[in-house]
């Protein structure tokens, strides 16, 4: 650090080392089409998935584009309010809200009829009993408190059904998850099916070809 030469008037005063510069910016956030359609469903206690075409993946919630096709998702499909836990973590710190009792479980849940898990809370079961493969159902807020937010589903709770022993954890859902090196063979783009052309994908790597 170089030596600073100060003018005499500042030689003997306590130097400033930091400064607070508070800043507030006010925005009006608009949700866009896909999100609005999803949340409109929520206000009717329906979980609406969207897809680009009748053969493509069902996304819940859709974010405006099928990320594999790069296409809009105009088709609406109501999915089930029950699903399977595909993975989870147990949270021991108060990250979220103030009402959550610690520990709580944040899980990836594949709703029946959807192709991608959503992240939500699991309650009404001790955290150390949550399992991959566990079947869970949505628990809604009271009707008066339903708002256009995924938080209108308070959490998911066990249905009591037997676990889905065949649950494919993330990446294995479609069996195409072997994105890594198998048998020392370097992967290529052809390892997976191209959703636009239908090309690629091998049985070995679990593609649908």
């Amino acid at each position: 650090m170089p030596e600073i030469q100060l003018p005499a008037s500042l030689a003997d005063v306590e130097p400033v080392r930091s400064v607070r510069t508070p800043a507030q910016l006010d925005y009006t956030f608009t949700a866009g089409d896909a999100t609005t359609r999803f949340l409109k469903g929520i206000t009717q206690k329906k979980i609406i998935g969207q897809q680009a075409n009748p053969d493509s993946r069902v996304y819940v919630p859709a974010r405006g584009a099928d990320p594999e096709l790069g296409a809009a998702t105009p088709i609406e499909v109501e999915v089930a309010q029950v699903g399977t836990v595909t993975s989870f973590c147990v949270v021991n710190l108060q990250f979220y809200g103030s009402g959550m009792e610690i520990p709580y479980t944040s899980a990836l849940i594949m709703l029946d009829g959807a192709d991608l898990s959503i992240m939500h809370l699991i309650q009404e079961i001790p955290a150390d009993q949550v399992r991959i493969g566990m079947r869970v159902e949505a628990v809604w807020r009271d009707d008066a408190d339903i708002e256009p937010t995924l938080e209108s589903i308070k959490w998911f709770r066990p249905t009591g059904e037997p676990d889905d022993v065949n649950v494919r954890i993330p990446g294995e859902i479609r069996g195409t998850g072997l994105g890594s090196w198998v048998g020392g063979v370097a992967p290529t783009e052809l390892t997976v099916r191209n959703p636009r052309t239908g090309e690629g994908g091998t049985a070995e790597f679990g593609g649908e070809g």
Partner: peptide
Amino acid sequence: PIPFTPPLHAGAGGYFAPHVRSYIRR
């Protein structure tokens, strides 16, 4: 606090922890 966006319940660690669990199981 982006409106209408599903909340992450537990920060970045809460996003990656389920994937770590998946790895351990796989």
